[in-house]
Design a protein around this nucleic acid. Sequence first.
DNA 1: TATGAATGAGTTTTCATTCAT
DNA 2: CATGAATGAAAACTCATTCAT
Lengths: 213, 213, 213, 213
Amino acid sequence: MAVALKLPAQDEALVLSRRRQIFLAACRVLARKSFHEATVREMALEAGLAAGSIYMYLRSKDEILLLLAESMVGELLEALPEIRAATADDPRRELLGVMRRALDVIDRYKEAFAVLNHEVRYLQRRLQYRTALKEIISEYTAALAAPLTRGREQGVINFESMPSVVEALHMLCSGWAMGGSLLSKTDKETYWREIAAMVEGRFFTAIKNGDES
Amino acid sequence: MAVALKLPAQDEALVLSRRRQIFLAACRVLARKSFHEATVREMALEAGLAAGSIYMYLRSKDEILLLLAESMVGELLEALPEIRAATADDPRRELLGVMRRALDVIDRYKEAFAVLNHEVRYLQRRLQYRTALKEIISEYTAALAAPLTRGREQGVINFESMPSVVEALHMLCSGWAMGGSLLSKTDKETYWREIAAMVEGRFFTAIKNGDES
Amino acid sequence: MAVALKLPAQDEALVLSRRRQIFLAACRVLARKSFHEATVREMALEAGLAAGSIYMYLRSKDEILLLLAESMVGELLEALPEIRAATADDPRRELLGVMRRALDVIDRYKEAFAVLNHEVRYLQRRLQYRTALKEIISEYTAALAAPLTRGREQGVINFESMPSVVEALHMLCSGWAMGGSLLSKTDKETYWREIAAMVEGRFFTAIKNGDES
Amino acid sequence: MAVALKLPAQDEALVLSRRRQIFLAACRVLARKSFHEATVREMALEAGLAAGSIYMYLRSKDEILLLLAESMVGELLEALPEIRAATADDPRRELLGVMRRALDVIDRYKEAFAVLNHEVRYLQRRLQYRTALKEIISEYTAALAAPLTRGREQGVINFESMPSVVEALHMLCSGWAMGGSLLSKTDKETYWREIAAMVEGRFFTAIKNGDES
DNA sequence: TATGAATGAGTTTTCATTCAT
DNA sequence: CATGAATGAAAACTCATTCAT
């Protein structure tokens, strides 16, 4: 999550708040346009910055994609301790908590998330971003993997392969933004109940007094 | 499906075969690059044409997206009579046949299909393509809607709203290319069995000696 | 006036009639568009030829300008013997006859003439056309110069410098097409009377039983 | 005369001085080439700008024509107060003053003016420029019309129809650049005396102690 | 730290011209 | 002779990125 390498701006706190502004501005712009239709100037202005100033906080247009990924994953991660605390060491409820949080974040930035999801394939080919992107992704998958591992150790979650179950769970959440599911016409809560049920049915030993937040 | 308006080239048969070459070339290029990374020149060369020659068969770069849609839907449509003939007037089996064919086409042009799926949102905003696109889409939805309608009349398929069931069925098929499903790591046949089962369970009166093509 | 150098087509008579078609087609097209807006294809089709066939009768697009000049001057020249015969050896009346004929030709191809008049400046810079163009222009000026010379010899036309009086007379005629005269709102006959009067007043010994036309 | 709509550059003073540079550069280039032979790059470089930079001050190549019109008319308009002051409320002398100024401006940018005069016909067909062009033209015609109106009220200028007399006067002035006059071989001062005399003779009550400019 | 004018590489698109048929 | 498909050079225009202020 560290701000990559050397940027013109030095003041750590300022950099973070500016990057947040830019992230939010980019999300707003990407709700209307594709990544390639949107110009750097447009996003900068939307963020309240002058056209060139964005380069104090970003080294290229492509890095906006990285910023999107980083910010969204960040919003997921910052809720983890609370989720952990609230789920009383039941990994099944923790897993549902993490997924619920992911769904909320995805829902909040729906269109931008869809754009990111598409562009990520191509971003990975740009070598300079591979490492940074991989790191962000692994923070995300770790958030899902942690309760899975503990759940398996405790014998309350069952699955064969970690990578594929993580991907499956991610797909369940991202389907909400991609419009790629049988359930896309329902509202978010209904969607959530559906995927929660699916997860419970497929992987879980029943949760007795289950209340998945 | 008619060759769009007036193009420089006039020889109908040549136009069709060249457009097919361009379609296939575009699919190959889009397997490696996003639509915006790929240049017209690149696709033309891949199709064995000189840079400018593509404009004898297309009026703009955006029309490549239309060509993708048109060609893929075309490959679906041309199989319809055979499907119809093979399914002995059982609309349930016909529906599965159409979906299976759609899945095959989508699978054949996987990456290009994913690109198209993403770009279509933005294409619709370009007024000059709205109508043409709408027409192609309606040919596709009609292919799914026909057996649904007959199935409902015969009391063997049950659903509430036509548009949403069509969308749901499309999403099941396209999920295969979008990587947007729980099942994406499995092979195509497994995926097919899963969605076929889902459809049979949700919408159908049981097919006795069911043989879904 | 000779058809320049070697052209693909050989049949002299055919070449001439095709060039006439092309000339007329170009005039029609140039009534709607500037020379640079008009395409070679467009003029060819208007002439009833296929796009590439125009190059059997013309070596380049620029040569259309030469063709315009050649054709218009040609229409003037072919009337000269008759004019000469009709004006009974009075060079003043012959001069007016030539000018009247020039005005008629200019009027017939008004817009194309205006286009030609503009483009000619730039055509002269293309070396390969300089000679041909110069030749056409000198045929035109000779038509005006001949009666002037004889008129001066006979003491019935007075002027100082031949080139400038020829240019002045040409400008009087071309003013009709260029919209570049005080008189442009009148009809052609009125315009003609004005310039004829001007010429008579400035250069002529009075014509007794004058009947110009 | 306002700087058109929204341009990338914002600094008003800079925009004005750059547009002036571009105007002068375009005039220099158009002295050598036609509008279509001249490239945007060439004009930008001549103005001391990089190829793409011209688009900070102009929205298209066609807008150069608008800039030409605007700048030339602007140079006429800015002299109006002085002309008015210097002509002691005699509308006849004011009219001659305006025409003299117009002739001077046209003479200063002779070739570019001729190009503009030709291209204007085609520019008018491009819808987006019609309004702007019409406005510039009406500022110009107003400059000529004002003294005419007052002269008629005072009974010292006589004419039938305002539009046609304005056009006639314009043609007299522009004839100087178009090479479209009997007098084109003379120097500017001789030309001016000729047209001034023509105007005085046709439209005016004699100016007693007349000193036109 | 912030700005926004300037840049120029890169892309789409047009069209005069060629040439195999 | 005639065709029209193919070509590729050239041009307008966009925009990510830089840098002097």
